[in-house]
Design a protein around this nucleic acid. Sequence first.
DNA 1: AGGACACTTACGTGGCGTCAACGTGC
DNA 2: CGCACGTTGACGCCACGTAAGTGTCC
Lengths: 250, 250
Amino acid sequence: LLTTGAFAKMAGVTVRTLRYYDRMGLLKPQGHTPSEQRLYRPEELVRLQQVLTLKYIGFSLAEIGRILNAPDFNLRAALIAQRATIGNKARQMTSVIRAIDEAISTVAGEKLDWEKFAGIIREVQMEKNQDFMKKYYTEEQLKAIAERGKNFTAADQVKVSAEWDDIYKTAKKLADKNADPAGKEAQALAKRAQAMIDAFTGGDKSIESGLNKFYADRQNWPAQMQNFVPKLDDKTQQFYEAMMKAHKEK
Amino acid sequence: LLTTGAFAKMAGVTVRTLRYYDRMGLLKPQGHTPSEQRLYRPEELVRLQQVLTLKYIGFSLAEIGRILNAPDFNLRAALIAQRATIGNKARQMTSVIRAIDEAISTVAGEKLDWEKFAGIIREVQMEKNQDFMKKYYTEEQLKAIAERGKNFTAADQVKVSAEWDDIYKTAKKLADKNADPAGKEAQALAKRAQAMIDAFTGGDKSIESGLNKFYADRQNWPAQMQNFVPKLDDKTQQFYEAMMKAHKEK
DNA sequence: AGGACACTTACGTGGCGTCAACGTGC
DNA sequence: CGCACGTTGACGCCACGTAAGTGTCC
């Protein structure tokens, strides 16, 4: 039986790590001495190797705990999911690398100036956003949206976001006082919301359905995009949906 | 002049972020109201955009602070370094992806068993280590080292690391009592150390010079490799180097 | 007067590193 | 007796999110 230090040396990890894994329930020593010293069997090395292997793959310790503590865990499915996660990160990184390369090579002089540099980065970001939006819109739809976006000034942008803010705020008020989603006030609000949607879609119903898919998929939005639209509480969210549904059925 | 909320909305960041950047010295508001409310000029948006752009590239906020607060900072050099860092991470990820793919495809059955899975991952890790070592050794040297490593059992490994532990411990003792690096005790220790080195290099001086380059480059070792060898304090480090130098000159 | 804003303080996140203060084994 | 080893507890890291409690503007 091995003490913490000896086991740590064998495994090539630190003592702190072993204690942490013990506390997290990832790797419990086989027993303790009367004075509470941890005692590991050499066989525990196998378990530790499993933990380290999964960590190398990029799983979090919590995930590793779930994987190793559930004997019928579907490792294959977990690996496939993890593969996708890593792939996304790697693609993101290579796009950043391309941006840096472009920034470095485009500006040949000693000092690269901020405007060009920032412009290049912005382009890459836009491109990435475009790629992301392909999950919800076809390329033609994206083109149409971009086309209408050209007449869109910063002032317009401020107005639009203020209007949406107000719509959400009003919706929350109505939801809080348990108003009828099909009632007069709610439907007046729904009309305002639909007008905003129509302005964005240009009345194209296929774009609107893409927009709905987009909004429903918020959990998969990148972090940066999350504060793009304020989060509604569950009650308001349900109220809003019922309200829009009633509006559509009229 | 804009309040925190208004400025945050314009920039697409949260109020919390602005306060954090203020505290960190990344983006100070232009002034304050008598009641301590932050006031931002619209021009500060440019500065914030710079921060966000550098963040997107993957710089930490501390690095961004150094970059933006030093007017003559060499941005080009920083970008090139950052590119390398990201490139390493991306390569690491794609190698993990390859490993996962291999694990999934090799084991066709429902359950992939641990042995095969771990074996594949280990191979990838070894490969990565090999790649890393190419910075210090030529391919033939690596081959020669691997060849000698074949006769190396786990028990040998334990012995070797115990001997090095003892060598370092003794070196620290000598350094602490300000012993002469060219003195008798130190030179006896140097002889032991040189014997260990010779056992590893097989007496090949070109391998030994690679080994020295490797040790000198500790800052660039991957994190996992850091506890491979204990860190010496500066005094012991200097003593050790002087001791080995004296030994070589004899 | 009330609600929408602002402020500071402080805890939580993950995976440990790194003391500090203390007990134990040889 | 000394010293290497073990233990728990607690803070630090990073970039904020998320309250809680309080003050301010319109």
